[in-house]
Design a protein around this nucleic acid. Structure first.
Length: 481
RNA sequence: GUCCCCAUCGUCUAGCCCGGUCCAGGACAUCGGCCUUUCACGCCGACGACACCGGUUCAAAUCCGGUUGGGGACGCCA
């Protein structure tokens, strides 16, 4: 990620054919699932077209923007490895640029100063709503010819007739009557631009070629198009992706459980899985479910993004995560799992041991959290027996089996799956019992419970010394009951 | 209230643009079976949808209109 923050590049000349996309979060909270997908689509589109991806922080809401949110968003983007080529730019660092363009609009008669107070506006809005009218600005100051003065805002003079057509890459053409629109504020009374103005100026000066964003912005687009036109500027292409909803079909919010990207990191998901899950919300490539990052870059296209909203659930994410856990190398997993291991205060173990243990857990865990929990018996020496498991399997009749096994295993020179299995098979055969009959008690002695990876895998990983020690401890337990 | 968008299995979706090959395909979840030293993995199978009503047509999931439902926007928020 390259961060070269500077603000004065709006005079730069762009090669017209290069694709430039951007992700412009407002730093008023964590990066959530919906935002992450928007970022992903922009990133993917830029990467797939050999273009550029810009990160821009839309912090013009001074009240609600925070440093922590900026950091949280950047952390999440980095975790997802959605690398940006420029930025992060901050709108609050670019105030002079917006003013320059506001002047242009003012000079060409496309903007005017307005002295209507917030309270007054609020009153008129409510009145309009009560009468069943559209709560638009009524144009009180439109032709007053006011000058700049404290407490005045700058409004855009929206054409009152005609239609504006948005040719959306995803939704197709959408037509709006200009008469439905009103004179929006472009500069607040403190001189800070409003969203609709700042995006246009930023997208324009940063040479953004494709604006890919949530479809909650569809209704803003005609206003923005009108500003581009008033400036005599070329329009970028627009693509509005449908929103992601919670299980009750309402927009994703805190009450839908985990919505922030970093919560998924904490829950033990790996970025590839989250990305794979998110990309399939709205986009598809035939029947394919699993995509590597590279494949995504090769196959992604905006034309194949669907138009209808989707619901985010964790079911598929869990499956995808389990898939990536199975596919990843034990070494890579070791790296990913270490923080979760540390969280549990397990004793330190060498990497090769961790990798071997992880290998046995790969097919049976869905998340890193699950895996770290399941690692316990490998990590902790004095494991305790689950009461029910011990009661059922560590029974008096097993004492002979345990002592027999201990002496047989002690004789082994190599202690691996291949050499271990015959010992157990033979013992079972001699006793005329099924392997399971002796396997479960041993499993309880080794792991403390009744569910675990294959017995011989475990033993190989644990090593001869630890295995015999645990069997002896099991035997002692049996003899004391 | 006004404007805008959307509508295929419980969920994610393929198919829709260029009507017939779709009594609608895949995946997740669920259920059943197989495998098996436990739990999983894996494999096999089952369940399960074109929102509704009209129209166009020899023929509609696919085209058109309406209805219903859901969502979004209407801020000196983004």
């Amino acid at each position: 990620m390259t961060g070269r923050p500077h603000a004065g590049f709006h005079r730069r000349v762009f090669r017209m054919e290069q694709v430039i996309t951007r992700f412009p979060p407002s730093p008023t909270g964590a990066l959530h699932i919906g935002g992450a997908r928007t970022a992903l689509f922009n990133w993917l589109f830029a990467r797939s077209r050999g273009g550029k991806f810009i990160l821009r922080i839309e912090d013009t809401d001074i009240e609600r923007s925070t440093e922590e949110s900026v950091k949280a968003i950047i952390d999440a983007m980095e975790w997802l490895e959605l690398s940006w080529d420029e930025g992060p730019y901050f709108q609050t660092h670019r105030l002079a640029v917006y003013r320059e363009y506001a002047e242009k609009l003012l000079g060409s008669g496309h903007a005017y100063w307005c002295e209507c107070s917030g309270e007054e506006l609020e009153k008129r809005r409510n009145a309009a709503l009560a009468e069943g009218r559209k709560p638009k600005y009524d144009g009180t100051c439109r032709s007053k010819g006011l000058d700049r003065a404290p407490n005045r805002v700058l409004r855009f003079r929206t054409p009152q007739t005609g239609t504006t057509i948005l040719k959306d890459i995803i939704k197709g053409p959408i037509e709006f009557e200009n008469s439905e629109l009103d004179d929006l504020v472009i500069l607040k009374s403190d001189g800070v631009p409003t969203y609709n103005f700042a995006v246009v100026i930023d997208d324009l000066t940063m040479g953004i070629t494709h604006v890919i964003r949530g479809d909650d912005h569809v209704n803003n687009t005609p206003r923005q198009i009108l500003i581009y036109k008033a400036l005599g500027a070329k329009l970028p292409q627009f693509g509005h992706v449908p929103m992601i909803h919670g299980e009750d079909r309402s927009p994703l919010s805190k009450r839908h459980g985990a919505t922030s990207v970093m919560e998924y990191k904490r829950m033990g998901f790996i970025p590839e899985a989250l990305l794979n899950c998110l990309v399939r919300l709205g986009w598809s490539h035939g029947d394919q479910e699993i995509f590597s990052r590279q494949e995504l870059i090769e196959k992604f296209s905006l034309e194949t993004v669907g138009k209808s909203p989707s619901i985010f659930t964790m079911e598929k994410l869990l499956w995808l995560n389990a898939h990536y856990i199975k596919e990843n190398s034990p070494q890579e997993l070791t790296r990913l799992l270490k923080p979760f291991l540390a969280e549990r205060n397990y004793p330190e173990k060498p990497d090769h041991f961790l990798a071997a243990a992880i290998h046995t857990l790969q097919p049976r865990t869905h998340t890193l959290v699950e895996m770290a929990d399941a690692m316990r018996f490998y990590m902790v020496d004095g494991i305790e027996f689950e009461p029910e498991a011990a009661a059922k399997f560590l029974t008096a009749d097993m004492s002979g089996v345990f002592s027999g096994l201990i002496s047989e295993l002690s004789k082994l020179e190599t202690f691996d799956e291949a050499s271990l299995e015959p010992v157990f098979r033979n013992t079972a055969q001699d006793l005329k019992v099924k392997l399971g009959k002796i396997a479960q008690p041993v499993r309880v002695a080794l792991t403390g419970g009744t569910k675990s990876p294959g017995l011989f895998e475990i033993m190989e990983v644990l090593g001869k010394e630890a295995v015999i020690e645990r069997l002896q401890k099991g035997l002692k337990y049996i003899e004391t009951v």
